[in-house]
Amino acid sequence: MSEKSECSPFSAEGLVAGHHVLDFTNTLAGWGSESPVDSLDDYISLARWSVDAGVMEPTLADILVMKASLESEEAAAALDSARALRTLLHHVFTAFALGEEPSYDDMESFEAFWRQAIAAHRLAFEGDHIEIRPAAFTSLTIIADLITRDAVDLMKTMPDKRLHLCANDDCGWLYFAQSPAAEQRFCGGKLCLNGEVGRIK
């Protein structure tokens, strides 16, 4: 993947993965291309994506956007961190999709995100059970923390043989097939809906 990428507004039509953690990795279109397109061009786009993907409530996302406008440097750092998390998750889940073991370096880096996410949560008693809740919904890192938490849960309960990497080499999107036996080779995302699939042999 090229180090530089174009920016494009996120569209809810890009939510094709079957799980918001994978949809988060798919906010970059064209992992294997020379000109990938990034939907997360600023913190506002990250907040909007979090609402569309069901990660954050609209009112909470609005608070984050307002805070980001007042704390621009912190927002930029949070966005950079979220993008780094996205790259790690793409590496890790791609390995899972290919039946391989994630690299030690990737898992070590992801563990650092996990430790940060755990530190940003607290235990709360609700009814007759314990819940893990964010300690502060107004932290600019809360979106990445929630995704990290949910990514760990997903890794523990991965549906058997349903995780796929799009067969379009330029695409790189991840998605869950409807069943282990489903013959779905392409994700149905941006590149694959724009005629790129037809070029693949």
Rank of each mutant, 00 (worst) to 15 (best):
L15D: 08
L70F: 06
A124N: 10
S72C: 08
E101A: 11
R149L: 07
R86M: 08
F110R: 02
E183A: 05
S109F: 09
C192E: 05
H129Y: 13
I118P: 03
E13C: 03
Q184N: 04
I118S: 10
P58Q: 10
A119N: 11
F113S: 05
R122Y: 07
L123G: 09
L60N: 15
D169F: 08
P9I: 02
L60M: 12
D145N: 12
F137Q: 13
G18H: 04
G99T: 11
K190D: 03
H164K: 13
I132C: 06
R149F: 13
D170Y: 07
I143L: 01
D38A: 01
E101Q: 14
W114F: 04
V37A: 00
R86T: 02
R133H: 09
A182V: 01
I63F: 04
M66T: 15
A182T: 03
D62F: 13
C187N: 01
Q178C: 07
F110V: 08
D62H: 13
A135G: 14
I130W: 05
E183D: 12
A119M: 04
G195V: 03
V16H: 01
A181Y: 06
V37S: 00
H121M: 15
T27Q: 03
H19Y: 11
A135D: 13
W49R: 04
D42C: 00
V197D: 04
R48E: 08
N194D: 13
Q184R: 14
F176Q: 06
E111A: 06
R86N: 04
A182M: 02
D41R: 11
A76E: 15
